[in-house]
């Protein structure tokens, strides 16, 4: 059912299990102990960065399936994606799994997008068990979007660090202590930001519009939630959202966080404005938010995946960066 722009999942698809796999730097961050697998290096036993990212996807998907006491054959469909051209790290991870696969691209909002679509499949009765997954790898993203790893450049303070991380969530009709109860697919907002080293600014307007639109449509207030978390706005984008919300009388402070800030210690880890990438929100979701819902730390959470829908080609042509934000409401049962 849809009221305004908000989808209501009457059958409340359950979060049956979840798993996360992250790189060394993410393992050294403030949430380091929360993740299931932390790589000793970022190669994950593979020769190329793209294959390393695929290995992370495989690890987190298999982790979620085995935690639920299931096998891949029990999964109806896998929905997911990553940042690489043609979403190869996910599709190459899935090629051995023999599972129905819907490849998604929502840039860094992919985890939220996959949860919305996965929950819709279950809520509508088309599937009973689906996997929603998203990943990113610092090294594979750098070589696609920016410079070679060993290139000696200096980054600006607004730049963000692509997380080496993958998170997978197994949604099912029954079981689990948390559920996806509502969602809101975002609209694209492009406020004209052309600096690809300031993606927080490019995405923040979309995040604010989605979050404020959700509260307008539901009639609820931010204080009705224990946590409202954006995917990867980092420091600049987070400040913009708080400033816009403050001007409009939307009281977000105290309840609002950003996965890009939570994942790293910015003073110690040289990540500039904070983390980014599909894996950033996916890993924080699977490593911190979902366990928090299960353990009673949170009752209701708004998980807002943010994406900058750019490519290096189109920004070189002088185009500005469109942003998007998808919202998922998660509740403890």
């Amino acid at each position: 059912m849809r009221k305004g722009s908000v989808y209501y999942f009457e059958n409340a698809p359950r979060v049956r299990s979840y798993s996360s796999c992250v790189g060394k730097k993410e393992g050294e961050g403030p949430l380091g102990d929360c993740f299931d697998i932390v790589g000793e290096d970022d190669r994950f036993g593979e020769e190329t960065w793209e294959k390393a990212e695929s290995a992370m996807v495989m690890t987190s998907v298999h982790g979620a399936v085995s935690k639920a006491g299931l096998e891949m054959g029990d999964i109806g469909c896998l929905l997911g994606g990553d940042l690489l051209n043609q979403c190869v790290s996910t599709s190459y991870a899935v090629r051995e799994m023999g599972v129905r696969f819907l490849g998604l691209y929502g840039a860094c909002s992919t985890m939220a997008e996959s949860l919305i679509l996965g929950a819709s499949l279950i809520n509508g009765g088309l599937e009973s068990k689906v996997i929603c997954t998203a990943s990113s790898h610092f090294c594979s993203a750098e070589r696609q979007y920016r410079y070679p790893l060993e290139y000696g450049g200096q980054r600006t303070p607004t730049a963000q660090w692509t997380a080496t991380a993958s998170g997978s969530v197994l949604l099912s009709e029954k079981g689990g202590k948390a559920a996806v109860t509502r969602a809101m697919a975002g609209r694209i907002y492009d406020p004209g930001v052309t600096d690809s080293a300031n993606m927080g600014a490019a995405m923040a307007l979309a995040a604010y519009e989605t979050i404020s639109g959700y509260f307008m449509d539901t009639g609820e207030k931010p204080r009705d939630y224990d946590l409202i978390v954006t995917g990867d706005l980092a420091q600049v984008g987070r400040d913009i959202v708080l400033s816009m919300a403050g001007e409009q009388g939307l009281e977000l402070s105290g309840v609002y966080e950003d996965c890009g800030i939570m994942l790293y210690d910015r003073d110690r880890q040289d990540v500039h404005a904070g983390g980014s990438g599909c894996g950033c929100s996916a890993a924080v979701l699977c490593g911190h938010i979902l366990p928090g819902l299960e353990k009673g730390l949170y009752k209701r959470v708004l998980f807002c995946g943010t994406g900058a829908l750019l490519s290096p080609v189109i920004t070189s042509q002088g185009e500005s960066i469109p942003g998007i934000c998808h919202l998922v409401c998660l509740e403890a049962l």
Partner: peptide, 10 residues
């Protein structure tokens, strides 16, 4: 919006 984000971007 540009004024806002430039003010908040170090």
């Amino acid at each position: 919006y540009k004024k806002l984000y430039e003010g908040l971007s170090p």
